[in-house]
Design a protein around this nucleic acid. Structure first.
Lengths: 249, 249
DNA sequence: CGTCGGTTTGACACCGGTCAAGTGACGTGG
DNA sequence: CCACGTCACTTGACCGGTGTCAAACCGACG
């Protein structure tokens, strides 16, 4: 439990603790991580495609997207990062060029040196495991997206994304899964669902009868059940712990 | 370098060594992993969707696919595993139900207990890092697939997959990237590319002018360059080390 | 010779892309 | 306070890429 106002690194620690038990000493090591805060304006690339970095990037406030860019400039958003998420944690294990990171809204981030994270993982096996788990959770979401893009039509596809973001938002303490702020444009949601902006707009309307609306950057889902139904959404892949955060022995 | 006939676990070790340095002791620990071999027939599920397992699954011979299944029975293949690949390494970090594993051809696998792998990671920080890297490489491929499915048309999409499989086959020592055995049916390739079997067949034909053929389960690419071009294929995301395997200090 | 799984082909329907125009909210500068 | 530009969203008409359905083909194997 965070005692006072949560520092940015607390957010990250909390996320880890949701899935992995960590001792007091390990928790302090994480909270003591060196870092450099930065503010990024909407539509600005935090990391341009093809650039290697020496820092992971913790989202503190706002919304960040990782994307793959085609030769003709088309973008496919490959994952969203919410406050508390560490964007490039996997790049501690492997420096990963080839993807870009874009701030979708005014965003506050913390840059944390890869080297420090790697050192932590080396010194504390439980932290190593926690990082690995965290990366695995991201990978699990990626796998689901592959299924979503490959085998679902526009409406269930979008519905699935909105269910996912709702669940993640709620779990991050940023709203309820049936009503949350999603600071993205329709064009960006299109980039995430593999649709065009025009068709995303139309698809959004076909979801209206189900009580799904997206206005003023706010997603509202009147009735969770039916939407989950069309989306075939099963949150298991998010690997959320439902109960208390895991505790160290 | 494997000295004598490579044991199955050697395959796995080699794969790890391609990306991570490991000392003699660590290498021996991996080679000494408890395991249970098994043979699986084509089209048979190694792990049914929704089942949790206590074992990771090392492919020794053949081809395995991880897939996501929709309510109506449609499948989306989410990743392919070649000999030497550990199918569910990530599930050591998090037990991941929700996906199935299917043998595409007659396949030999080795089941390795999660617990033993976890123990190894706990005892050897370099092994932990190696596992993490390995998982990260898989995740990188997943991310690329998201881009591929979301923003490319059938022909470049399929071409991209064939380039990827070629590169991976070659690197696993199972052929050359321009000519390799891919023991999958067209329907299964369709499941991987998010197409229907019918359209996959047609798409295959549109690639013929580029010198791409798939007959008798063998992919042939007459001229690598132009195909890479239409596919927009850049192998960086495979995170292959081009030079010597990394060595421990 | 018959069966079966996999592949190939054709005709047709439909989902989603493309292009283009129009609306509405908001901020800026006159 | 209004004129204007910008950006996101909306709508319509049309087109093309894929899906669907159904039949035929083919090679492997009994």
């Amino acid at each position: 439990m965070p005692l006072s106002t949560p520092t940015p690194l607390q957010l990250f620690l909390n996320r880890l603790l949701r899935r992995s038990p960590l001792g007091r000493q390990e928790q302090e090591a994480i909270l003591g991580l060196r870092n450099r805060p930065a503010q990024v304006e909407p539509r600005q690339d935090i990391v341009s495609p093809g650039t290697a970095t020496a820092h992971a990037c913790l989202v503190v406030k706002g919304l960040v997207a990782r994307f793959d860019q085609m030769r003709d400039g088309k973008r496919q958003i490959v994952s969203f990062y919410l406050p508390g998420d560490m964007c490039d944690l996997h790049s501690v294990a492997v420096s990963t060029p080839g993807w870009g990171l874009e701030a979708l809204t005014t965003t506050t981030v913390l840059f944390v040196p890869h080297a420090d994270l790697a050192q932590l993982a080396q010194d504390h096996s439980r932290i190593a495991m926690a990082f690995w788990r965290d990366t695995t959770a991201d990978a699990s979401i990626l796998a689901k997206w592959v299924g979503n893009l490959g085998r679902r039509q526009a409406a269930p596809r979008l519905a699935h994304l909105l269910c996912e973001m709702g669940s993640r938002m709620e779990q991050a303490g940023l709203g309820s899964k049936t009503r949350y702020n999603l600071p993205a444009t329709q064009a960006q949601l299109a980039d995430a669902t593999g649709l065009t902006a025009v068709h995303l707009n139309r698809t959004l309307k076909t979801l209206a009868p189900y009580g799904v609306t997206f206005r003023a950057r706010t997603v509202r889902i009147e009735d969770w059940g039916p939407v989950v139904e069309v989306a075939e959404f099963d949150p298991a892949y998010l690997l959320l712990r439902t109960g208390e955060p895991a505790r160290a022995a």
